[in-house]
Design a protein around this nucleic acid. Structure first.
Length: 391
DNA sequence: CGCGTTTGACCTGCGC
DNA sequence: GCGCAGGTCAAACGCG
């Protein structure tokens, strides 16, 4: 499967390469592949990132360099979107729609001077630890307000749901009883490694490692990261039965940037704040792809308290190794347009529909919802395009 | 005492 | 098979 992905990736890369800007490390031993979408402020341009997506390579772009990547700019004065808003999108839709396809990047409403790299990485193969090092986009906008958003999910995310339930059940059992025997633990680990849930990574410019996303996390491990002076911390959601994990590590190249990787789906509302208050940001139209956990539609949406501090400036990246995800073309003026289809099935939703919908209803989209800017589902596309054209 | 963190040991997958 | 690196476990510890 992995090989197939590689091949697909290669083919796509060959297709896309002519217009792509090579600013990423492509030589690799990595097995994870993703699409790295980058635009510049002058002419929107998508880029296929190379294979070797390790964290350090993300920051190969000099942080201090002129703002080379300005893909989505929010010209509104008050941008309500934040790390948590990004987090609040529906990861289930990511997970459930890994084999598709296009996405209108104009839909990203971002902060002023916000730069986004948007890549979607549905992992088709079982996620192993080795994959993780490569799931990061190697180019990163580095302006102070840059935001990158990355995600990855198992292709088998749907399939994994049941598996995960099994694992969780088993884990729950372990929690209440005596520790399993070593063989049992082994089996459990194997099971866990077989299929993991979707992962979504954020690059956040922050002084704080453990960003407050409204959930309660328990640190269960810390490991030194190779070629990095900063350790990687492992957190697990403390809610019983919720197997969501997150990893937090700091960029060795730019210590101010924290990469937070979420894995799994919360099966419970955030303990911090009610969710309803951002329901306005969510379009119900986009909900049709929601799966399992999205049924818990009463998820609260924690306010990104950490964002109250100026220290935190989220980067958003989405990982993608499904290179067919995006139909890409360049308009005559160099701006990126979504040919034919503006839908982004990677979210299990049709962005074209989203772009025509301005209705706002509180809907839960699970962790993916927690990640994608809500207006990704709304109709900022045309507005933004017009603004760009007017320049 | 409950909860979270720390940290060394252990397990697993991968490359050579 | 071996070594390496990532991920996890779990006992010890700290804190309120």
């Amino acid at each position: 499967m992995e090989k197939k992905i590689k091949e697909d990736h290669h083919q796509e890369q060959q297709k896309e390469e002519p217009n792509s800007t090579k600013n990423t490390e492509t030589t690799t031993t990595s097995s994870t592949h993703m699409m790295n979408l980058i635009t510049t402020s002058d002419h929107h341009q998508m880029e296929l990132a190379g294979n070797n997506m390790n964290l350090s390579s993300i920051f190969d772009i000099p942080i201090s360099s002129p703002f080379a990547y300005s893909y989505f700019e929010d010209h509104s004065s008050n941008n309500p979107y934040s790390f948590l808003d990004l987090l609040r999108q529906d990861q289930h839709q990511f997970a459930s729609s890994s084999n598709s396809s296009s996405f209108s990047f104009n839909a990203f409403p971002l902060q002023n001077n916000t730069n986004h790299i948007f890549t979607y990485l549905p992992l088709s193969q079982p996620v192993t630890t080795k994959d993780e090092s490569s799931e990061v986009v190697s180019t990163t906008p580095t302006s102070p307000n840059s935001t990158s958003f990355s995600s990855s999910s198992n292709e088998a995310a749907n399939d994994n749901i049941n598996k995960e339930v099994t694992v969780k059940d088993q884990e729950d059992g372990d929690q209440h009883g005596p520790k399993g025997t070593k063989p049992q633990l082994k089996a459990k680990k194997k099971q866990q490694k077989k299929g993991r849930e979707a992962r979504f990574a954020f690059l956040t410019k922050s002084d704080i490692d453990n960003l407050d996303d409204g959930y309660r996390w328990r640190k269960y491990g810390q490991k030194a990261v190779k070629n990095s002076p900063y350790p990687r911390s492992y957190y697990r959601c403390t809610t019983v039965g919720c197997g969501v994990k997150k990893r937090v590590e700091r960029s060795s190249d730019d210590p101010s940037i924290v990469m937070t990787t979420y894995e799994g789906q919360h099966t419970h509302p955030s303990p911090m704040t009610p969710r309803g208050h951002i329901g306005m940001l969510t379009s119900p139209i986009l909900d049709h792809g929601a799966t399992t956990a999205s049924s818990s539609s009463s998820f609260s949406i924690p306010q990104p308290r950490y964002l109250l501090s100026q220290h935190h400036q989220p980067y958003n990246i989405m990982y993608n190794n499904s290179l067919s995800m995006i139909n890409r073309s360049s308009s005559s003026d160099g701006s990126f347009v979504n040919p034919g289809s503006s839908s982004f099935h990677g979210f299990g939703c049709d962005m074209s529909q989203a772009s025509t919908s301005t209705t706002s209803t509180i809907r839960d989209h699970g962790l993916l919802q927690d990640i994608l800017p809500s207006q990704i589902r709304s109709d900022t596309i045309n507005t933004r395009t017009n603004e760009e054209d007017n320049k």
